[in-house]
């Protein structure tokens, strides 16, 4: 059986090397070389919505989507891709090289990974002593606009029962992980509690003052 080979474009996003089927790549441009008029796209990050307009191609900043710190010393590149029936552009830090890989060098990502990971990186390239995730551009498109779900690490949308919430908050406090959000949320409650206590202190103080005056008059 012939060992079909695939041409893969290897590129850099932050400190991460990724790969892409070369047949999807229409052109590569220096990001700085494109004038504002030529930037016929709305720059899209994960949370924003794409402004669809005729002639515009969506540009996805992979560093922002993947949470990678972009490299500061490199001139950014924009890769124009053709996927299915439309085009999209990916902004990356650096385009490295083209490699030829056989089927035996490419493995599907393990089913233990969630759908989002497997949608964006369905395959992995085995290269000597390291691995390169192979990007699915359409997966990135879906990821850029899909809402954060309860599967996302660190996001919990289910309801806690009181004991569970108390355990969680106690652990977070002990681990010094109390987030600013929690402090803000609880600040009003704390302020009200302090105000109530201060109100009680004030009552006691006034009562003592009154007792003091009464005692003074008697004397």
């Amino acid at each position: 059986m012939a060992n079909d080979r695939k041409e893969l474009l290897i590129f850099q996003v932050g400190n991460r090397q990724l790969g892409l089927d070369l047949s999807l790549v229409r052109s590569i441009h220096g990001a700085n070389a494109l004038s504002e008029e030529e930037m016929l796209f709305e720059e899209v990050v994960r949370e924003s919505h794409l402004q669809q307009a005729e002639g515009k191609i969506p540009l996805y900043d992979l560093s922002a989507i993947l949470g990678e710190t972009p490299l500061s010393h490199t001139a950014k590149k924009v890769m124009l891709l053709k996927v299915q029936d439309h085009s999209l552009a990916l902004k990356v830090d650096h385009v490295n090289r083209v490699v030829s890989a056989g089927n035996d060098q490419i493995e599907p990502l393990s089913p233990i990974f969630r759908e989002r990971s497997r949608c964006c990186f369905p395959h992995v390239l085995k290269q000597e002593d390291h691995l390169i995730l192979l990007l699915n551009p359409e997966g990135i498109e879906q990821t850029a606009f899909s809402p954060v779900t309860e599967e996302e690490p660190g996001v919990q949308t289910r309801a806690f029962d009181p004991e569970e919430l108390e355990d969680l908050l106690t652990r977070m406090a002990q681990e010094d992980m109390m987030s600013e959000m929690i402090v803000r949320v609880s600040a009003r409650v704390i302020e009200e509690a302090v105000a109530r206590k201060m109100g009680e202190v004030e009552k006691i103080f006034r009562k003592r003052m009154e007792e003091g005056r009464t005692h003074g008059r008697k004397q």
Binding site: G67, S117, L131
Partner: peptide, 16 residues
Amino acid sequence: VQSVPFSPSYIEGVTL
């Protein structure tokens, strides 16, 4: 270990 974006915290990544 190569980390994989969007994976849950219990997965460190993948290795060869």
